[in-house]
Every structure is written in C-alpha cells, then in structure tokens.
Simulated assay, not measured.
Amino acid sequence: MPFTLDKGWLSPARHCESPHQDERPAGDISLLVVHCISLPPGRFGDNYIDDLFLGRLDANAHPYFEGIHQLRVSAHCLIRRDGELVQYVPFHRRAWHAGLSCFDGRERCNDFSIGIELEGTDTGDYTDAQYRQLAKMTRALMQAYPAITPERITGHSDIAPGRKTDPGPGFDWKRFRAML
C-alpha cells in the first residue's frame, strides 16, 4: 500500500499525537534524522515508547523510568521491530527529537528536520521489516519534501557527536541507502 500524506499525517501509520511538539520556524524541511529507542533499554514490544512520547510514562513501571518519566521528548515517527509505523507529530510541526544538535553548520536540527525512531538499541541490529518500512517512508518523505536528499539523511550520532550514539554501528547505512 503506498503512503499518502494529509495535513502532515502519513497513512497508513497509526496516529498518536504527542503534546511534545510546537510550530516550526519558517524554512524548508531539509533533513531526516534516524534514531533508535527501546524502553526499558534493550526491551522491545511494550507501549512504553508511546507513553514517553505522549507524556504519560509511569515512573513506577520500571526503575529506569524514574530518571526519564518527566522528559518532554517526541519524534515524528517510530518504526517498531515488526515494521509497524506510528506517527506522533505531523511533519509540518517541530518534534522534540534532536536536542542540542548541528548539521552542515546549522544548529537546532529540530527546526528543519524530521525525526524517525527505530525500535532498537545502538548496539544491536535492526529487522528486515524496519529497513523496508524506513526505506518506503523515506522515499515518500523525499517526494513530499524535495530538500531531503540522500546526502541529508543522517543519524542522531552525526548531529550530536559525543552526546548521542544512535542508531549505532548495527544500523546498515549502505543497505538502507541502496533501498532508496
């Protein structure tokens, strides 16, 4: 099924709108940032990522959550291990995914980027379903936002070096770029 984009929302993604977003400053959307996340670290398949991005993570559900439940973070989309696509923030709005960041001399990457999370760890590998979904979605985004070119697709580790390591060495950039 091909992707369609309506008012910043991608179909057929599952939509769960995050309160952790705001208006973008004027300008092109010109960067795609690949991240990874698992909550608690190394565990997959729970709804804790949704809970974090929706601002409802229970600090008592796991000891790790005591230190992160108050964070106000989000991403535009998450691709789960089985390839399920979840969208939290419409693309024309700013998701809070990059933090302190810089790409090609330009700071505040949230202002001009789309953030895609892969359910995973920065020390592990990703699934075939995730690569297929990421490539399909990236092609749709590149069509909708022509300023996003293959050279303007990067990892969180590249825009926040020394601070972030995701998506990590297990992410096969060569494979992903060949799928585009």
Score class of each variant (00 low, 15 high):
residue 21 Q to D: 08
residue 62 H to W: 12
residue 8 G to T: 12
residue 49 I to M: 01
residue 130 Q to R: 09
residue 60 N to Y: 10
residue 35 H to Y: 01
residue 154 T to W: 04
residue 128 D to L: 11
residue 42 G to L: 09
residue 153 I to S: 11
residue 89 V to H: 14
residue 79 I to V: 04
residue 44 F to W: 08
residue 132 R to H: 09
residue 2 P to W: 03
residue 10 L to M: 11
residue 9 W to Q: 05
residue 54 L to P: 03
residue 14 R to D: 02
residue 107 E to G: 00
residue 102 C to T: 01
residue 44 F to V: 09
residue 60 N to K: 08
residue 29 I to F: 04
residue 87 Q to Y: 13
residue 51 D to G: 01
residue 53 F to N: 06
residue 168 G to F: 09
residue 174 K to Y: 08
residue 57 L to A: 10
residue 40 P to T: 08
residue 157 S to N: 04
residue 62 H to Q: 14
residue 118 L to C: 04
residue 108 R to A: 02
residue 74 S to E: 11
residue 103 F to T: 00
residue 89 V to Y: 14
residue 156 H to Y: 03
residue 135 A to N: 08
residue 173 W to S: 10
residue 104 D to S: 05
residue 80 R to K: 11
residue 7 K to V: 00
residue 121 T to S: 14
residue 22 D to E: 14
residue 17 E to Q: 15
residue 109 C to Q: 00
residue 164 K to P: 00
residue 73 V to E: 06
residue 20 H to S: 06
residue 114 I to K: 13
residue 28 D to I: 01
residue 33 V to R: 02
residue 59 A to V: 06
residue 141 L to Y: 13
residue 117 E to P: 01
residue 78 L to N: 05
residue 1 M to Y: 06
residue 167 P to C: 08
residue 21 Q to I: 05
residue 151 E to S: 11
residue 99 G to H: 00
residue 171 F to N: 11
residue 28 D to L: 10
residue 112 F to H: 02
residue 130 Q to M: 09
residue 72 R to S: 15
residue 150 P to G: 10
